[in-house]
Design a protein around this nucleic acid. Structure first.
Lengths: 215, 215
DNA sequence: CTGGTATGAATGAAAG
DNA sequence: CTTTCATTCATACCAG
Protein backbone atom coordinates (compact mmCIF):
# COMPACT_ATOMS: atom_id res chain seq x y z
CA UNK A 1 0.00 0.00 0.00
CA UNK A 2 1.48 3.22 -1.01
CA UNK A 3 1.08 6.54 0.55
CA UNK A 4 -0.92 7.73 -2.31
CA UNK A 5 -3.37 4.98 -1.93
CA UNK A 6 -3.58 5.73 1.66
CA UNK A 7 -4.26 9.29 0.98
CA UNK A 8 -6.90 8.36 -1.42
CA UNK A 9 -8.56 6.21 1.09
CA UNK A 10 -8.69 9.03 3.49
CA UNK A 11 -10.20 11.20 0.93
CA UNK A 12 -12.81 8.71 0.23
CA UNK A 13 -13.74 8.40 3.78
CA UNK A 14 -14.05 12.07 3.90
CA UNK A 15 -16.23 12.16 0.90
CA UNK A 16 -18.49 9.48 2.09
CA UNK A 17 -18.82 11.04 5.42
CA UNK A 18 -19.86 14.22 3.80
CA UNK A 19 -22.39 12.54 1.70
CA UNK A 20 -23.94 10.86 4.61
CA UNK A 21 -24.10 14.07 6.40
CA UNK A 22 -25.74 15.75 3.53
CA UNK A 23 -28.27 13.08 3.32
CA UNK A 24 -29.19 13.73 6.85
CA UNK A 25 -29.38 17.39 6.19
CA UNK A 26 -31.55 16.82 3.30
CA UNK A 27 -33.94 14.90 5.36
CA UNK A 28 -34.15 17.65 7.78
CA UNK A 29 -34.70 20.10 5.06
CA UNK A 30 -37.48 18.09 3.69
CA UNK A 31 -39.18 18.02 6.94
CA UNK A 32 -39.24 21.74 6.91
CA UNK A 33 -41.72 21.55 4.19
CA UNK A 34 -44.22 19.97 6.37
CA UNK A 35 -46.78 22.07 7.98
CA UNK A 36 -46.66 19.97 10.98
CA UNK A 37 -43.61 19.10 12.59
CA UNK A 38 -41.82 16.81 10.75
CA UNK A 39 -39.08 14.70 10.27
CA UNK A 40 -36.59 13.25 12.46
CA UNK A 41 -33.70 11.47 11.28
CA UNK A 42 -32.35 8.71 13.20
CA UNK A 43 -28.93 7.66 12.38
CA UNK A 44 -28.31 4.41 13.80
CA UNK A 45 -24.94 3.07 13.38
CA UNK A 46 -24.28 -0.25 14.72
CA UNK A 47 -21.14 -2.10 14.54
CA UNK A 48 -20.81 -5.63 15.38
CA UNK A 49 -18.40 -8.28 14.64
CA UNK A 50 -19.03 -11.59 13.18
CA UNK A 51 -16.76 -13.97 11.57
CA UNK A 52 -17.99 -16.21 8.96
CA UNK A 53 -21.60 -15.71 8.52
CA UNK A 54 -21.09 -12.23 7.60
CA UNK A 55 -22.19 -10.98 4.34
CA UNK A 56 -23.21 -7.94 2.59
CA UNK A 57 -26.79 -7.23 2.96
CA UNK A 58 -27.03 -4.42 0.63
CA UNK A 59 -28.51 -5.17 -2.69
CA UNK A 60 -27.52 -1.98 -4.23
CA UNK A 61 -23.93 -2.53 -4.31
CA UNK A 62 -21.60 -5.09 -5.50
CA UNK A 63 -19.42 -6.93 -3.22
CA UNK A 64 -16.27 -5.09 -2.69
CA UNK A 65 -13.30 -6.36 -0.87
CA UNK A 66 -15.12 -9.25 0.43
CA UNK A 67 -15.08 -10.83 -2.89
CA UNK A 68 -11.47 -10.34 -3.44
CA UNK A 69 -10.62 -13.80 -2.45
CA UNK A 70 -13.40 -15.52 -4.15
CA UNK A 71 -15.53 -13.57 -6.44
CA UNK A 72 -18.11 -16.17 -5.93
CA UNK A 73 -18.75 -15.32 -2.43
CA UNK A 74 -22.00 -13.71 -1.92
CA UNK A 75 -22.10 -13.24 -5.58
CA UNK A 76 -25.51 -12.54 -6.81
CA UNK A 77 -26.81 -14.54 -9.58
CA UNK A 78 -28.82 -11.74 -10.77
CA UNK A 79 -27.76 -8.37 -11.80
CA UNK A 80 -28.16 -5.69 -9.26
CA UNK A 81 -28.20 -2.21 -10.60
CA UNK A 82 -25.76 0.09 -9.02
CA UNK A 83 -27.12 3.36 -7.81
CA UNK A 84 -25.48 5.14 -10.61
CA UNK A 85 -27.06 2.87 -13.08
CA UNK A 86 -30.39 3.13 -11.46
CA UNK A 87 -30.25 6.80 -11.64
CA UNK A 88 -29.59 6.76 -15.31
CA UNK A 89 -32.26 4.25 -15.95
CA UNK A 90 -34.82 6.20 -14.07
CA UNK A 91 -33.95 9.25 -15.98
CA UNK A 92 -34.29 7.55 -19.25
CA UNK A 93 -37.48 6.01 -18.21
CA UNK A 94 -38.93 9.35 -17.47
CA UNK A 95 -38.04 10.69 -20.80
CA UNK A 96 -39.47 7.98 -22.82
CA UNK A 97 -41.32 5.53 -20.86
CA UNK A 98 -41.86 3.73 -24.00
CA UNK A 99 -39.91 0.70 -24.83
CA UNK A 100 -36.51 1.63 -25.91
CA UNK A 101 -35.62 0.29 -29.26
CA UNK A 102 -33.05 -2.36 -29.65
CA UNK A 103 -30.48 0.14 -30.58
CA UNK A 104 -31.49 2.31 -27.76
CA UNK A 105 -30.99 -0.52 -25.41
CA UNK A 106 -27.59 -0.98 -26.74
CA UNK A 107 -26.73 2.59 -26.13
CA UNK A 108 -28.06 2.58 -22.69
CA UNK A 109 -26.25 -0.55 -21.88
CA UNK A 110 -23.12 0.99 -23.11
CA UNK A 111 -23.54 3.93 -20.91
CA UNK A 112 -24.42 1.94 -17.89
CA UNK A 113 -21.48 -0.24 -18.45
CA UNK A 114 -19.42 2.68 -17.36
CA UNK A 115 -20.64 2.15 -13.90
CA UNK A 116 -20.52 -1.55 -13.71
CA UNK A 117 -21.08 -4.73 -15.51
CA UNK A 118 -24.35 -4.95 -17.23
CA UNK A 119 -25.86 -6.58 -20.21
CA UNK A 120 -28.48 -5.57 -22.65
CA UNK A 121 -30.77 -8.14 -21.24
CA UNK A 122 -30.54 -6.50 -17.90
CA UNK A 123 -31.55 -3.22 -19.34
CA UNK A 124 -34.32 -4.73 -21.28
CA UNK A 125 -35.69 -6.52 -18.28
CA UNK A 126 -35.41 -3.48 -16.20
CA UNK A 127 -37.57 -1.50 -18.50
CA UNK A 128 -40.04 -4.23 -18.81
CA UNK A 129 -40.40 -4.55 -15.13
CA UNK A 130 -40.38 -0.89 -14.55
CA UNK A 131 -43.16 -0.34 -16.94
CA UNK A 132 -45.25 -3.23 -15.85
CA UNK A 133 -45.04 -2.30 -12.24
CA UNK A 134 -45.73 1.31 -12.66
CA UNK A 135 -48.66 0.49 -14.81
CA UNK A 136 -50.06 -1.87 -12.32
CA UNK A 137 -49.92 0.67 -9.69
CA UNK A 138 -51.45 3.28 -11.80
CA UNK A 139 -54.38 1.24 -12.82
CA UNK A 140 -55.08 0.57 -9.24
CA UNK A 141 -56.88 3.78 -8.79
CA UNK A 142 -58.50 4.25 -12.07
CA UNK A 143 -60.99 1.61 -12.81
CA UNK A 144 -63.43 0.86 -10.18
CA UNK A 145 -65.39 -1.90 -11.46
CA UNK A 146 -67.92 -1.97 -8.79
CA UNK A 147 -66.11 0.29 -6.50
CA UNK A 148 -64.77 -0.94 -3.32
CA UNK A 149 -65.92 0.85 -0.33
CA UNK A 150 -63.18 -0.71 1.53
CA UNK A 151 -60.69 1.43 -0.09
CA UNK A 152 -60.61 4.42 2.05
CA UNK A 153 -58.28 6.12 -0.16
CA UNK A 154 -58.77 9.73 -0.10
CA UNK A 155 -56.11 10.82 -2.31
CA UNK A 156 -56.21 9.83 -5.80
CA UNK A 157 -52.63 10.53 -6.32
CA UNK A 158 -51.55 8.32 -3.63
CA UNK A 159 -52.14 4.95 -4.90
CA UNK A 160 -50.45 3.12 -2.21
CA UNK A 161 -52.58 4.33 0.54
CA UNK A 162 -53.19 1.31 2.58
CA UNK A 163 -49.63 0.50 2.85
CA UNK A 164 -49.62 0.69 6.56
CA UNK A 165 -51.22 -2.24 7.99
CA UNK A 166 -53.32 -3.04 10.83
CA UNK A 167 -50.60 -3.16 13.33
CA UNK A 168 -52.05 -0.07 14.65
CA UNK A 169 -55.13 -1.15 16.40
CA UNK A 170 -57.09 1.92 16.99
CA UNK A 171 -55.24 3.79 14.47
CA UNK A 172 -56.42 2.72 11.16
CA UNK A 173 -56.98 6.32 10.77
CA UNK A 174 -54.39 7.16 8.32
CA UNK A 175 -57.08 9.01 6.64
CA UNK A 176 -55.15 12.06 6.58
CA UNK A 177 -53.45 12.95 3.52
CA UNK A 178 -54.93 16.12 2.51
CA UNK A 179 -52.78 16.70 -0.40
CA UNK A 180 -49.96 17.24 1.88
CA UNK A 181 -47.27 15.89 -0.10
CA UNK A 182 -44.68 18.32 -1.04
CA UNK A 183 -43.66 19.11 -4.40
CA UNK A 184 -40.08 18.58 -4.54
CA UNK A 185 -38.47 20.51 -1.88
CA UNK A 186 -35.88 22.94 -2.78
CA UNK A 187 -33.27 20.87 -1.35
CA UNK A 188 -33.58 17.56 -2.78
CA UNK A 189 -31.59 14.70 -3.63
CA UNK A 190 -30.99 16.58 -6.75
CA UNK A 191 -28.78 18.93 -5.01
CA UNK A 192 -27.30 16.50 -2.73
CA UNK A 193 -26.25 14.32 -5.42
CA UNK A 194 -25.89 16.95 -7.88
CA UNK A 195 -28.67 16.10 -10.12
CA UNK A 196 -30.94 13.49 -9.11
CA UNK A 197 -33.95 13.41 -11.15
CA UNK A 198 -36.39 16.08 -10.43
CA UNK A 199 -39.65 15.37 -8.76
CA UNK A 200 -42.12 15.77 -11.44
CA UNK A 201 -44.99 13.44 -11.64
CA UNK A 202 -43.45 10.12 -11.48
CA UNK A 203 -45.40 7.37 -10.14
CA UNK A 204 -43.74 5.00 -7.89
CA UNK A 205 -43.62 1.67 -9.44
CA UNK A 206 -42.57 -0.25 -6.46
CA UNK A 207 -45.29 -1.38 -4.32
CA UNK A 208 -47.81 -2.53 -6.71
CA UNK A 209 -50.84 -1.56 -4.85
CA UNK A 210 -53.09 -3.54 -6.90
CA UNK A 211 -51.89 -6.05 -9.22
CA UNK A 212 -55.27 -6.05 -10.58
CA UNK A 213 -55.32 -4.25 -13.79
CA UNK A 214 -58.92 -4.33 -14.66
CA UNK A 215 -60.18 -3.47 -11.34
CA UNK B 1 -42.00 14.69 -1.88
CA UNK B 2 -42.94 12.00 -4.20
CA UNK B 3 -42.74 8.39 -3.55
CA UNK B 4 -40.12 8.02 -6.09
CA UNK B 5 -37.95 10.46 -4.38
CA UNK B 6 -38.49 8.69 -1.20
CA UNK B 7 -37.54 5.46 -2.71
CA UNK B 8 -34.54 6.96 -4.29
CA UNK B 9 -33.54 8.35 -1.03
CA UNK B 10 -33.92 5.08 0.62
CA UNK B 11 -31.76 3.46 -1.90
CA UNK B 12 -29.14 6.04 -1.58
CA UNK B 13 -29.06 5.66 2.08
CA UNK B 14 -28.66 2.05 1.51
CA UNK B 15 -25.81 2.68 -0.75
CA UNK B 16 -24.14 4.95 1.64
CA UNK B 17 -24.63 2.48 4.34
CA UNK B 18 -22.81 -0.01 2.30
CA UNK B 19 -20.07 2.36 1.59
CA UNK B 20 -19.63 2.97 5.21
CA UNK B 21 -19.64 -0.68 5.75
CA UNK B 22 -16.89 -1.11 3.35
CA UNK B 23 -14.95 1.67 4.85
CA UNK B 24 -15.17 -0.04 8.11
CA UNK B 25 -13.88 -3.12 6.53
CA UNK B 26 -10.97 -1.29 5.26
CA UNK B 27 -10.30 0.46 8.39
CA UNK B 28 -10.29 -2.71 10.21
CA UNK B 29 -7.98 -4.20 7.76
CA UNK B 30 -5.68 -1.32 8.14
CA UNK B 31 -5.44 -1.28 11.81
CA UNK B 32 -5.80 -4.92 12.39
CA UNK B 33 -3.60 -5.77 9.54
CA UNK B 34 -5.48 -8.90 9.33
CA UNK B 35 -7.90 -10.42 7.01
CA UNK B 36 -10.94 -8.43 6.47
CA UNK B 37 -13.67 -10.75 7.33
CA UNK B 38 -15.40 -9.61 10.33
CA UNK B 39 -16.82 -6.31 10.85
CA UNK B 40 -20.02 -5.10 9.65
CA UNK B 41 -21.43 -1.76 10.05
CA UNK B 42 -25.00 -1.19 9.70
CA UNK B 43 -26.02 2.26 9.07
CA UNK B 44 -29.57 2.60 9.70
CA UNK B 45 -30.96 5.83 8.67
CA UNK B 46 -34.47 6.19 9.47
CA UNK B 47 -36.70 8.99 8.89
CA UNK B 48 -39.92 9.40 10.57
CA UNK B 49 -42.66 11.57 9.64
CA UNK B 50 -44.92 12.69 12.31
CA UNK B 51 -47.12 14.21 9.81
CA UNK B 52 -49.61 12.13 8.12
CA UNK B 53 -49.19 13.64 4.79
CA UNK B 54 -45.74 12.42 4.79
CA UNK B 55 -46.53 8.86 4.82
CA UNK B 56 -48.84 9.00 1.95
CA UNK B 57 -48.67 5.37 1.62
CA UNK B 58 -45.01 5.22 1.49
CA UNK B 59 -44.06 1.84 2.76
CA UNK B 60 -40.92 3.01 4.26
CA UNK B 61 -42.19 5.86 6.17
CA UNK B 62 -45.48 5.22 7.59
CA UNK B 63 -47.40 5.67 10.66
CA UNK B 64 -48.33 8.87 12.25
CA UNK B 65 -48.70 8.76 15.93
CA UNK B 66 -45.12 8.04 16.18
CA UNK B 67 -44.55 11.53 17.25
CA UNK B 68 -44.66 10.46 20.79
CA UNK B 69 -42.79 7.30 20.89
CA UNK B 70 -40.39 8.38 18.36
CA UNK B 71 -37.72 5.85 18.74
CA UNK B 72 -40.05 3.09 18.10
CA UNK B 73 -41.65 4.42 15.09
CA UNK B 74 -40.45 4.93 11.68
CA UNK B 75 -40.17 1.31 11.20
CA UNK B 76 -41.79 0.15 8.12
CA UNK B 77 -44.53 -1.88 9.55
CA UNK B 78 -45.42 -4.67 7.41
CA UNK B 79 -48.76 -6.18 7.21
CA UNK B 80 -49.29 -8.96 9.65
CA UNK B 81 -52.13 -11.23 8.87
CA UNK B 82 -54.50 -11.76 11.66
CA UNK B 83 -55.32 -15.30 12.61
CA UNK B 84 -58.72 -14.97 11.11
CA UNK B 85 -57.28 -13.74 7.90
CA UNK B 86 -54.66 -16.37 7.87
CA UNK B 87 -57.21 -19.02 8.25
CA UNK B 88 -59.14 -17.81 5.30
CA UNK B 89 -56.05 -17.49 3.24
CA UNK B 90 -54.88 -20.95 4.06
CA UNK B 91 -58.20 -22.30 3.19
CA UNK B 92 -58.25 -20.63 -0.14
CA UNK B 93 -54.76 -21.72 -0.76
CA UNK B 94 -55.69 -25.28 -0.22
CA UNK B 95 -58.46 -25.07 -2.68
CA UNK B 96 -56.49 -23.62 -5.42
CA UNK B 97 -52.92 -23.27 -4.70
CA UNK B 98 -52.72 -21.83 -8.08
CA UNK B 99 -52.56 -18.19 -8.70
CA UNK B 100 -55.73 -16.49 -7.80
CA UNK B 101 -56.92 -14.32 -10.58
CA UNK B 102 -56.87 -10.62 -10.24
CA UNK B 103 -60.53 -10.49 -9.55
CA UNK B 104 -60.18 -13.29 -7.15
CA UNK B 105 -57.66 -11.34 -5.24
CA UNK B 106 -60.03 -8.51 -4.99
CA UNK B 107 -62.68 -10.68 -3.55
CA UNK B 108 -60.38 -12.21 -1.09
CA UNK B 109 -59.10 -8.88 -0.07
CA UNK B 110 -62.57 -7.72 0.42
CA UNK B 111 -63.36 -10.56 2.63
CA UNK B 112 -60.25 -10.30 4.65
CA UNK B 113 -60.83 -6.65 5.11
CA UNK B 114 -63.60 -7.67 7.42
CA UNK B 115 -61.04 -8.79 9.86
CA UNK B 116 -58.57 -6.04 9.58
CA UNK B 117 -56.79 -3.69 7.36
CA UNK B 118 -55.39 -5.30 4.31
CA UNK B 119 -54.68 -4.50 0.76
CA UNK B 120 -54.75 -6.48 -2.39
CA UNK B 121 -51.05 -6.29 -2.53
CA UNK B 122 -50.87 -8.04 0.75
CA UNK B 123 -53.00 -10.80 -0.51
CA UNK B 124 -51.06 -11.03 -3.66
CA UNK B 125 -47.81 -11.21 -1.83
CA UNK B 126 -49.13 -13.70 0.55
CA UNK B 127 -50.00 -16.11 -2.17
CA UNK B 128 -46.77 -15.56 -3.91
CA UNK B 129 -44.82 -16.26 -0.82
CA UNK B 130 -46.97 -19.08 0.22
CA UNK B 131 -46.46 -20.92 -2.97
CA UNK B 132 -42.77 -20.28 -3.15
CA UNK B 133 -42.36 -21.34 0.38
CA UNK B 134 -44.24 -24.55 0.07
CA UNK B 135 -42.41 -25.36 -3.06
CA UNK B 136 -39.09 -24.81 -1.46
CA UNK B 137 -40.01 -26.93 1.42
CA UNK B 138 -40.87 -29.72 -0.84
CA UNK B 139 -37.67 -29.60 -2.74
CA UNK B 140 -35.79 -29.43 0.48
CA UNK B 141 -36.94 -32.83 1.39
CA UNK B 142 -36.15 -34.14 -1.97
CA UNK B 143 -32.45 -34.03 -2.22
CA UNK B 144 -31.72 -33.79 -5.83
CA UNK B 145 -29.09 -36.34 -6.13
CA UNK B 146 -26.82 -33.95 -7.70
CA UNK B 147 -23.49 -32.72 -6.86
CA UNK B 148 -23.08 -30.32 -4.16
CA UNK B 149 -19.95 -28.60 -4.83
CA UNK B 150 -18.28 -27.78 -1.66
CA UNK B 151 -17.98 -24.15 -1.46
CA UNK B 152 -14.94 -23.30 0.38
CA UNK B 153 -16.21 -19.91 0.62
CA UNK B 154 -16.12 -18.05 3.77
CA UNK B 155 -19.76 -17.90 4.18
CA UNK B 156 -21.22 -21.27 4.04
CA UNK B 157 -24.22 -20.23 5.88
CA UNK B 158 -26.34 -20.95 2.96
CA UNK B 159 -27.74 -24.32 3.43
CA UNK B 160 -28.91 -25.02 0.03
CA UNK B 161 -27.76 -23.48 -3.06
CA UNK B 162 -29.65 -24.63 -5.97
CA UNK B 163 -28.28 -21.79 -7.78
CA UNK B 164 -28.68 -22.34 -11.43
CA UNK B 165 -25.72 -20.25 -12.23
CA UNK B 166 -25.43 -16.78 -13.28
CA UNK B 167 -27.70 -16.01 -16.03
CA UNK B 168 -25.46 -13.20 -16.56
CA UNK B 169 -22.69 -13.61 -19.01
CA UNK B 170 -20.63 -10.76 -17.91
CA UNK B 171 -20.79 -11.00 -14.24
CA UNK B 172 -19.11 -8.30 -12.45
CA UNK B 173 -16.54 -10.53 -10.98
CA UNK B 174 -15.33 -7.63 -9.02
CA UNK B 175 -11.74 -7.93 -9.77
CA UNK B 176 -10.95 -5.98 -6.77
CA UNK B 177 -7.69 -4.40 -6.71
CA UNK B 178 -5.19 -5.76 -4.36
CA UNK B 179 -5.90 -5.22 -0.85
CA UNK B 180 -6.01 -1.64 -0.16
CA UNK B 181 -5.37 -1.90 3.39
CA UNK B 182 -3.25 0.74 4.71
CA UNK B 183 -1.73 1.02 7.99
CA UNK B 184 -3.06 4.15 9.30
CA UNK B 185 -5.98 4.26 11.54
CA UNK B 186 -5.78 7.94 11.79
CA UNK B 187 -9.11 8.17 10.35
CA UNK B 188 -11.24 6.06 12.48
CA UNK B 189 -14.70 4.98 11.97
CA UNK B 190 -15.42 6.57 15.20
CA UNK B 191 -14.60 9.82 13.72
CA UNK B 192 -16.47 9.17 10.63
CA UNK B 193 -19.52 8.28 12.51
CA UNK B 194 -19.11 10.58 15.34
CA UNK B 195 -18.61 13.70 13.43
CA UNK B 196 -19.70 12.86 10.03
CA UNK B 197 -18.36 16.06 9.02
CA UNK B 198 -15.81 16.99 6.68
CA UNK B 199 -16.53 19.74 4.43
CA UNK B 200 -15.43 19.22 1.05
CA UNK B 201 -17.14 18.85 -2.13
CA UNK B 202 -20.20 16.87 -2.41
CA UNK B 203 -19.53 14.44 -5.05
CA UNK B 204 -22.38 12.93 -6.87
CA UNK B 205 -22.71 9.38 -5.95
CA UNK B 206 -22.43 8.15 -9.43
CA UNK B 207 -19.02 9.58 -9.52
CA UNK B 208 -17.90 7.81 -6.50
CA UNK B 209 -17.16 4.94 -8.64
CA UNK B 210 -14.25 6.79 -9.90
CA UNK B 211 -12.67 6.49 -6.61
CA UNK B 212 -13.48 2.97 -6.91
CA UNK B 213 -12.24 1.49 -3.81
CA UNK B 214 -13.22 -1.91 -4.68
CA UNK B 215 -11.97 -2.37 -8.08
C1' DC C 1 -30.75 -7.20 25.07
C1' DT C 2 -29.14 -10.56 21.53
C1' DG C 3 -29.63 -13.96 18.16
C1' DG C 4 -32.43 -16.93 15.39
C1' DT C 5 -36.42 -17.79 12.64
C1' DA C 6 -40.86 -16.95 10.14
C1' DT C 7 -42.66 -14.33 6.72
C1' DG C 8 -44.02 -9.86 4.25
C1' DA C 9 -42.10 -7.20 0.60
C1' DA C 10 -38.98 -5.84 -3.38
C1' DT C 11 -37.30 -6.98 -7.73
C1' DG C 12 -34.51 -9.25 -11.54
C1' DA C 13 -35.49 -12.79 -14.67
C1' DA C 14 -38.38 -15.76 -17.14
C1' DA C 15 -42.53 -17.74 -18.78
C1' DG C 16 -46.82 -17.02 -21.20
C1' DC D 1 -46.70 -6.77 -22.88
C1' DT D 2 -48.52 -9.31 -18.70
C1' DT D 3 -48.05 -12.59 -15.13
C1' DT D 4 -45.32 -15.72 -12.40
C1' DC D 5 -41.18 -17.47 -10.31
C1' DA D 6 -37.06 -17.24 -7.55
C1' DT D 7 -34.01 -14.99 -4.57
C1' DT D 8 -33.07 -11.83 -1.31
C1' DC D 9 -33.91 -8.22 2.08
C1' DA D 10 -36.08 -6.55 6.13
C1' DT D 11 -38.88 -6.94 10.06
C1' DA D 12 -41.98 -9.06 13.49
C1' DC D 13 -41.72 -12.33 16.85
C1' DC D 14 -39.90 -15.68 19.86
C1' DA D 15 -36.31 -17.88 22.68
C1' DG D 16 -32.24 -17.83 25.71
Amino acid sequence: MTDEQMEMLRKQISVYATICEQLVEMHKGLSAHQDFAGFLVEVNLRCFASDLGMRLGNPYFCDPLLSSSVHKIGSRQRWTPKPAQLEILEQIFKQCNATPGRQKIKDITKELAQHGQISETNVYNWFQNRRARSKRKQSAVLPNSGESEVETEIESFKEKKTKPEDSQPDEDATPVSDHMYLHSPDIGIDQLVGKMESPGSCIPYWQLEQYDLFG
